[in-house]
Amino acid sequence: MKIAGIKINTSRLALYLLAIAITIVMLMPFAWMLSASLKLNREVFQFPIHWIPPHPRWQNYIDIWTKIPLTTFIYNTAKITIIVTLLQLLTSSFAAYAFAKLRFPHRDLLFLGYVATIAMPWQVYMVPQFLMMREMGLYNTHLAIICLQAFTAFGVFLMRQFYMSIPDELCEAARVDGMSEYRIWWNIMLPLSRPALSTLTIFTFVFAWNDFLGPMIYLTKTELKTIQIGLRMFISQYSAEYGLIMAASVVALVPVLAVFLVLQRFFVEGIASSGLKG
């Protein structure tokens, strides 16, 4: 096909149209959210949709901070998320190094035990876990959420799969040079595993930031709540304040979007090297 002297490949054109159509479906709810967050309640459901509000109401973004303790919610969530992510990266890569590069009795059995629990939904044992935490005096504390998210089998599995792809000779050479195992982990393995660490960071950060059921069960005091249950509380209290709800939702989304965009170039690589090869 030729249009105005430019040769256009029809099948490629179809591919582009398809890709654009899917992208619109995937992103439309976010565009609508952003647009509604700048509208008055009565404008939100106007049809046809005004994607760009004629009189953007920035006031919505000011009002949400006074209607609910959004600052507290964000602080709580950021605190939990950052501690969980750091603990997860540190302990997972540490344990994974032993599973991938060291020899010791019952190594494979122990690893199998880890992997078997990945398939075990958290919901199966959330009730006994809650009872145990309550006995330990962790009900209504952030420590409970940190403890239940920071030590996952998934993290160990992901890091171990990545370390398996790093040649053993590298560690052997370092050992011969007299490096201790701890130094090898710190100086050689960690710098090499940036893609896997990025993948794990995205997963952990996103999971901890967005977790709903955990904080809902453990945190009932308003001053302890995370952004997700805070947002949920806001939605049920002000169910007709559409513009404000959308503004608060945008605020809850931004940190995840930021982390994701910064780290996403590692993402496909990270999953490719860790998720699939047994």
């Binding site: 899917i22 995937m26 709810p29 967005n210 945008v250 496909v268």
Partner: peptide
Amino acid sequence: FRTAAFFPYVASLVAVAVVWNML
């Protein structure tokens, strides 16, 4: 395109569910 398709997965469920309910 890849990032766009992946974004709903990382987005807060509370936030996208409320949009979904409105849509």
